Simulated scan of single mutants.
Amino acid sequence: MLKLQNISKQFDSKVVLNDISLEINTGEIVSLLGQSGSGKTTLLNIILGLTTMNTGKIIFNDIDMSQVEMKNRGFNIVFQDYALFPNLNAYQNIVYGLKNKKGLVTEEELNEYIEFLELKPHLTKKIGELSGGQKQRVALARTLVMKPKILLLDEPLSALDGVIKESIKERIKLIAREYKLTTIIVTHDPEEALTLSDKILIINQGEISQFGTPQEIINKPSNDFVKEFILKQLHIKKQNIYNLFGEEND
């Protein structure tokens, strides 16, 4: 279990996060959803250890990780731009992080990740030869071979569309289930969050507007901001969402 306790962050005089507290269970997919500048990416970076917080605690499996360096937390991220090495082929990118982690995965486990993400036909291709969906799968494989305790994804679907986007969405769900891997996703897209996540944290101006299941957020929005953001501001048709989750909330 991951617990965030009273996390606050300030850059100079600007408060970016204010008293964020929540609990995420093992194997859950949780989306951090909000507008640009809401604080969601800052919160992801605080969990990763890339950004320090002003106040609060991060507790993982009853261990206080608040002062633990990023490299020792065991939380791994797939960045929005994938951050792959263009001079290396897909296989070399996947195993790159294992150079200094001898014995972390067996050959059998490595092949399992490659098969699971359907990358075998693409292993010798350079990154420039891969489609967006294939690059995303290579980035996921590179992260999975490091055996992360928590998987962090920064806008994982933003560069994808159509069938490829739906395919990667299903793959993320499968990864969370297959490996019981707690997964935290930053997104600005309500429809993406609603169809991908077990729970959603909606952040508005650095504060929690609502934390709950997609059904709770659709059927019982906690305030006007949630209702406006989910149903109007990003132009999601009400009926599409109600078809997914049932009961309409007037």
Rank of each mutant, 00 (worst) to 15 (best):
I114D: 11
P121L: 10
L151F: 10
S222F: 01
Q136M: 08
P121I: 11
F211Q: 03
I175Y: 04
L174S: 13
E228R: 13
L117I: 03
L110W: 03
D154P: 14
K149F: 09
T143C: 13
T182E: 11
T183Y: 04
L117K: 00
H122A: 14
N204M: 00
A176S: 14
S197E: 09
D198Y: 05
R171A: 14
P190N: 01
L110P: 13
T143F: 01
K232V: 10
K227V: 02
F116P: 12
Q233A: 04
D161T: 09
N111R: 13
K147M: 01
I208F: 05
I218Y: 00
K180D: 14
V145N: 01
A141D: 08
V186Y: 15
D154K: 12
P190Q: 00
V186M: 13
K125R: 15
A176P: 10
N223V: 09
G212Y: 08
L140T: 06
V226L: 12
G212R: 10
P148G: 10
E166Y: 09
P221Q: 06
I208P: 00
D154S: 14
L117S: 05
R142W: 05
F229H: 02
N204G: 08
D224R: 14
K199M: 05
Q215Y: 12
I217C: 04
S209M: 09
E207Q: 14
A193M: 11
E228T: 10
S167D: 15
P214N: 10
I150M: 05
G132N: 05
S167G: 10
Q233F: 04
F229V: 06
N219C: 09
N223W: 11
S209R: 07
S209I: 09
S209W: 12
T187H: 04
I168G: 00
P190C: 00
I185D: 05
L144Y: 03
K135Q: 15
K220S: 14
L157I: 08
V163C: 00
E166Q: 12
T183N: 04
D154R: 13
G162W: 02
Q210E: 11
V105F: 01
P190T: 04
H122I: 11
E207W: 00
V186F: 14
Y113C: 03
L144M: 07
L110H: 12
Q134A: 07
Q136E: 12
S131E: 06
E166R: 08
K180L: 13
